[in-house]
Design a protein around this nucleic acid. Structure first.
Length: 112
DNA sequence: TTCCTGACTCCAG
DNA sequence: CCTGGAGCCAGGA
């Protein structure tokens, strides 16, 4: 059923490259792939990422404000928050604290 | 087939 | 400072 289009695979690849305890944004991933204005597609890709293997750490992907906009799409609304907190990321009221400290831009690393 | 929605972001008013 | 519209494109009804 998944089309596995190149774009989606690239998204998954980038997300899987996000280090432990770090987070990234849809826009940053889109920018890395050259489709800045397609941030929605990144989110859409995450929607399919649930059944993929190896699993994609979708909880490390948030919007540009560090807000856990996708928490509702996890098994439980608190799952995303719990996972991030478990990795040492401070999250309060569904928002990441000190986002700049945890933010990971794929363009910064250029590779895993 | 068309129409609508959405885990986003930017820009104008 | 806050609000709304546009761009993006894949799927479901």
């Amino acid at each position: 059923m998944p089309k596995n289009s190149n774009f989606f695979l690239d998204v998954y690849d980038v997300v899987r490259c996000i280090p432990y305890g770090r987070v990234s944004s849809y826009g940053a991933i889109g920018a890395y792939l050259g489709t800045v204005k397609s941030a929605r597609m990144v989110g859409w890709a995450m929607n399919q990422a649930h059944n993929l293997s190896p699993p994609v750490p979708a909880h490390r992907v948030v919007n540009r404000n560090g807000l856990l906009t996708g928490k509702n799409h996890f098994s439980t609304p608190t799952r995303m928050h719990e996972l991030l907190t478990n990795e040492g990321v401070q999250v309060i009221n569904d928002q990441i604290i000190n986002l700049e400290e945890y933010f990971w831009d794929p363009q910064d690393h250029l590779q895993c």
